[in-house]
Design a protein around this nucleic acid. Structure first.
Length: 280
DNA sequence: GCCACTGTTAGCAT
DNA sequence: CATGCTAACAGTGG
């Protein structure tokens, strides 16, 4: 489940290794990975990688001119280095080999939800997959956040997960953010005071910054492109901790299903009844 | 072997 | 339009 901090970490580890390398070949093992025509991959042969960046939970690899590879890792996607030509495992979906490099880059995806799209445009951020994304949480101001929040009536948990509202927050960080802000996941966005809105925004930034600094959260099988684990799972206060004591007050962490997603929270620290404005 | 579960999004209903 | 629910993706594990 790579979310913003994990994709940011993968982008950084990938960037260190691939920028400046020239692509020798792309070998697609699973046609379902690619959104578009298989022939589009041919254009990338011989291109030199110039940049790797993240937008929301998506990864963009610039390959010279207007060519870009756009990846979404969804739940189980990730990158892995292997010796040149060495067979990948059954979950390898794409191999990229490089001119003069002893190692190939593999894209692996156990559950095959991830996708790759080839872009040939000078403005890749306008691609359909990226155009509708909300702002980058680490780049936005408190004023912009408050402005976007005003008029929204849904539950805070659902709003944080809405990629058109804010790009990059997923289930783990939404729960951790709400815990830090002491807001109940079912409380309504429309009930927030200016002060609590500011507190929520601070929690968004603080949580994501800390998670990026820790290299993301390695639960299940997440690793960066160099096979390194993140450390932020050790700092999860509520996610996955149903029944454990709240690190702040000792009350038992509870689990609710909201919009079909697990939501972990402290019933004492995160007050506010469903449908009612958040109250501490 | 059945089925709940996982995160995300598309699609649909309200 | 905003919101929320469900299905689907594909594999894991109880």
């Amino acid at each position: 489940m790579p979310e913003l901090p994990e994709v940011e970490t993968i982008a950084a580890s990938l960037r260190r290794k691939v920028v400046g390398l020239r692509i020798a070949a792309l070998e697609l093992y699973d046609r379902r990975l690619l959104r578009g025509e298989a022939a589009e991959l041919a254009a990338f042969r011989g291109k030199k990688i110039t940049a790797v960046r993240r937008r929301g939970k998506m990864l963009l690899i610039a390959c010279g001119g207007d060519l870009h590879l756009l990846f979404h890792l969804k739940m189980t996607g990730g990158f892995h280095w292997t010796d040149r030509g060495a067979p990948g495992d059954v979950h390898a979906r794409l191999r990229v080999s490089f001119v003069g490099s002893p190692r190939d880059l593999l894209f692996r995806d156990v559950r095959r939800f991830g996708f790759l799209r080839c872009l040939d445009t000078g403005s890749p951020l306008d691609a359909a997959e990226l155009r509708r994304l909300g702002p980058e949480p680490l780049d936005m101001s408190a004023e912009e956040f408050a402005g976007r929040l005003s008029g929204r009536t849904g539950r805070l948990k659902s709003l944080l997960l809405d990629q058109t509202f804010l790009a990059g927050v997923g289930n783990i960080y939404a729960d951790e953010i709400l815990f830090r802000a002491r807001l109940h996941p079912l409380s309504k966005a429309s009930g927030l005071t200016a002060k609590r809105t500011a507190g929520l925004f601070a929690a968004v930034k603080d949580t994501l910054k800390a998670a990026v600094a820790a290299g993301g959260s390695s639960i299940r099988d997440y690793k960066d492109a160099d096979g390194m684990d993140g450390l932020f799972q050790n700092d999860h206060r509520v996610y996955g901790r149903k029944g454990e004591p709240c690190p702040r007050c000792g009350a038992k962490i509870r689990r609710l299903v909201i919009g079909g997603r697990s939501s972990f929270f402290c019933p004492r620290c995160q007050r506010g009844r469903p449908g009612a404005p958040a109250a501490n």
